[in-house]
Simulated scan of single mutants.
Amino acid sequence: MKNLRIAQVAPLWTRIPPTTYGGIELLMKLHIDELVARGHDVTLFASGDCFTSGKLHPVCELNLTELCERGEAYCFEYYASAAMAEVLARAGDFDVIHYHLSTAWLPLAAATSTPGLFTMHTSPHVDDEFVFRRWPQVAVNGISRSQMHASGTRLGRQFPVVYNGCDFGAYDPRFERGEYLAFLGRMSPEKNPLDAIRVARAVDMPIVLAGQPQNAKEQAYFSEQIQPLIDGEMVRWIGPVNHPQKNELLRHAAALLFPIQWDEPFGLVMIEAMACGTPVVAHRRGSVEEVIDDGVTGFHSGVIDALADLVPAALKLDRRQVRARAEARFSYQAMVDAYLEIYRGLQR
């Protein structure tokens, strides 16, 4: 099979690779590096502070998070539109264009004959379905079956699913049981660190929280609901973590708590914990049932109050098997294989 010329269009909010928070950007780094290693010609449309083994086409000088913090940018739409304008101006240079922007920009992708693929990193809503219906010639994929099921049913359309992948070689597994529970995610009601603390209390284990609020609403939640419970002993908060810190947090944890209160499209942190050999105890919403092999890599329940009852069983799981099963299902190489299959299908 011939090598492909592939454009990758980044969300622009965070540099690639990310320093702390940035799941999409981490996945793009792994994806692009593997494509280049396999001989494909990849051009990344992103902010100028990104590092990539492909060719970088800078859309703006810095990632938008930093630009906005400096007061040098205000509205995302201008920069996303610039990314679309620049990749479409070069559309003839590529065999396929892979968009990681919102599908609000899908109508523009329909204006070129170069095949395009939009990956849905969020849950689709009525506006997404409007553009899916109106421009069906632009391919769309999901990252879990649960994420795309309702839209697929309403539209009578099958959306391919590509599970997110993980670089298992970047995590140091620990096969001895840890002494604390871990929570890693935004400090938000949807991610639900409050119930993670309650579960830890119910099983009389310390918990270490990592992550931070991302906006004013989440800051208020954190200040009012979470901060008063942090005592530095049974409840610790270590803030945002970089990769080495994340690795240490997860590998030394007895289990990861994932008590989400929304329909998570995927939940990359679950497989990052599994890469460390750490089982996951989760609320059964969104993709949880697809990601966790119940009784092998963790446990899930449809009732948050029941999660504490699952912790003792999770602590008895074989941590070697946790990692092995997760690696068999969620390697980044398998993710790249699946995307290449879609790309080649678009060439026909």
Score class of each variant (00 low, 15 high):
14 T>W: 02
302 G>E: 00
295 G>A: 00
217 K>S: 14
55 K>E: 15
108 L>D: 11
69 E>Q: 03
135 W>E: 11
285 R>D: 04
182 A>H: 07
314 A>Y: 04
187 M>N: 03
84 M>C: 10
43 T>S: 13
107 P>R: 05
85 A>H: 09
85 A>T: 10
220 A>G: 15
331 S>V: 11
312 P>D: 13
172 D>E: 13
137 Q>F: 01
132 F>C: 04
250 L>E: 10
87 V>F: 00
311 V>R: 00
76 F>C: 02
336 V>C: 10
227 Q>T: 12
177 R>P: 09
302 G>S: 06
228 P>G: 09
129 E>K: 06
83 A>L: 12
23 G>W: 05
25 E>S: 03
103 T>V: 09
72 E>G: 00
104 A>T: 09
324 A>N: 11
266 F>A: 08
164 N>I: 11
257 L>A: 12
275 A>T: 06
198 R>S: 14
121 H>I: 09
240 P>H: 07
292 I>H: 06
199 V>A: 04
247 N>D: 15
216 A>T: 15
36 V>P: 03
184 L>E: 06
316 K>L: 13
152 G>T: 12
298 G>A: 02
311 V>E: 04
117 L>E: 08
125 H>F: 05
66 E>F: 05
9 V>D: 01
52 T>W: 13
7 A>V: 06
171 Y>N: 02
316 K>Q: 15
73 A>F: 02
345 G>I: 07
114 T>Y: 07
327 E>K: 11
221 Y>D: 14
4 L>S: 07
223 S>L: 12
325 R>Q: 09
171 Y>Q: 02
19 T>L: 05
263 D>V: 09
308 A>W: 00
278 T>F: 06
6 I>P: 00
95 D>I: 01
147 Q>D: 10
55 K>P: 02
232 G>Q: 09
195 D>G: 04
158 Q>H: 12
27 L>R: 02
65 T>K: 06
211 G>C: 07
41 D>C: 10
274 M>I: 03
243 H>Q: 12
290 E>S: 09
147 Q>Y: 10
169 G>C: 15
344 R>H: 13
21 Y>Q: 08
198 R>I: 06
106 L>N: 01
95 D>E: 00
95 D>Q: 00
146 S>F: 14
13 W>M: 03
42 V>F: 08
324 A>K: 14
345 G>T: 15
10 A>P: 00
346 L>K: 03
122 T>L: 10
223 S>M: 15
147 Q>R: 09
179 E>F: 13
206 P>Q: 04
304 I>N: 02
171 Y>G: 05
68 C>L: 02
60 C>G: 06
126 V>Y: 05
295 G>D: 02
125 H>W: 07
288 V>I: 06
20 T>A: 00
132 F>S: 03
30 L>W: 07
4 L>C: 10
337 D>F: 13
51 F>E: 15
315 L>D: 04
212 Q>P: 01
204 D>I: 05
34 E>C: 06
344 R>E: 15
174 R>I: 14
211 G>H: 05
127 D>E: 11
227 Q>A: 13
57 H>F: 14
252 H>E: 14
167 D>Y: 13
299 F>R: 00
333 Q>R: 13
292 I>W: 07
114 T>F: 04
143 I>G: 05
100 H>K: 01
335 M>S: 10
348 R>F: 02
287 S>T: 03
275 A>W: 04
266 F>N: 08
124 P>F: 03
306 A>K: 11
36 V>Y: 04
303 V>E: 01
145 R>H: 11
4 L>D: 08
275 A>Q: 00
343 Y>N: 11
298 G>H: 03
280 V>N: 03
